[in-house]
Structure formats: C-alpha cells, structure tokens
C-alpha cells in the first residue's frame, strides 16, 4: 500500500460559503485521504505556503459567489511563480463557460454541485494522476 494521499483544501477571498468544501473534506477523510482544511479567507500565498509545508499531493479550492476567475488567476499564477506543479481542483458554483476556461488555464478538474461521494472520489483520483505530467 502507498501512503495515503494528502490533500489541501481552502476557501479563498471573502466568500464564506463553506458547506461544500467541508463536506468534501469529510468525504475524502472517510475514504482514506489525509485532508488539511485551511478554512476561509486565504490568499494565494497562504494556500501555496501551506501546500509546501504540508507536502500535499493536490490542492482543492471552492467558490460560490462569483470570484472564482479572479482568484483562480491569482492562485495559478502564484503557483507558476513558485514553481509548484501540483494539480488543482476548483469546486463550487462555476458557470459552464467558466469551467471550460478554468480547464484551459490548467485547472485539473472542476467539481460542481450535485456530486455524490463516488463522483468526488473519481474526480480526485483522476486529478491526482495529472501530477507532474
């Protein structure tokens, strides 16, 4: 058996809708992942610092109130500058067009509302395979 995969989850910006991400954290924990949840209101720099310190395999962030494009641009740019190539999953209320654009920007997967645990696990496994490709 490999050691359990480590996942960093965080909310960014001022959005405080955290039901989705806290539920996902629990779903992942119950299925053998080690999850570090950073809570609300993180900056890109805070997310990256925690990802390094915690030596995670994947970063997941989530948005509900329309700030996903601005925040994801910041995060991906800052990760590039830091030379960090971890796969990133973006969850939340993400319009169709934006989901496509986010994937184009290098986001590994987009998780939208209405996923069952099996869906989440499938998406996370697929994103983990993208590591360092």
């Amino acid at each position: 058996m490999n050691s359990p995969k480590r996942i960093l989850l965080a909310k960014m910006g001022l959005d405080c809708h955290d039901t989705g991400i806290i539920t996902v954290a629990q779903q992942l924990r119950e299925n053998g992942f080690e999850v570090i949840y950073l809570g609300l209101h993180n900056s890109a720099q805070q997310v990256i610092k925690a990802a390094m310190e915690e030596d995670v395999d994947l970063v997941g962030v989530s948005f509900l109130s329309g700030q996903h494009m601005a925040q994801m641009c910041n995060l991906l740019e800052a990760m590039r500058e830091a030379g960090m190539r971890l796969p990133v999953i973006c969850g939340g209320v993400i319009p169709d067009d934006d989901a496509a654009e986010l994937r184009g920007m290098g986001v590994a997967e987009v998780i939208r509302p209405g996923c069952l645990t099996a869906d989440i696990l499938r998406i996370v496994s697929s994103a983990l395979e993208m590591r360092r490709e």
Binding site: G13, L14, S65
Partner: peptide, 18 residues
C-alpha cells in the same frame, strides 16, 4: 457585496475580484 459586508472599502487589497 462581500467587501462591504466585512467592512472593507472597495479599494482594499482584500476586496480584489469581489
């Protein structure tokens, strides 16, 4: 908007994108 809801001015760096 969220910046105002938390008592921040629109030009506070924390308000970016919001």
């Amino acid at each position: 908007d969220l910046p105002t809801s938390y008592g921040f001015d629109s030009d506070d760096p924390i308000a970016e994108g919001e």
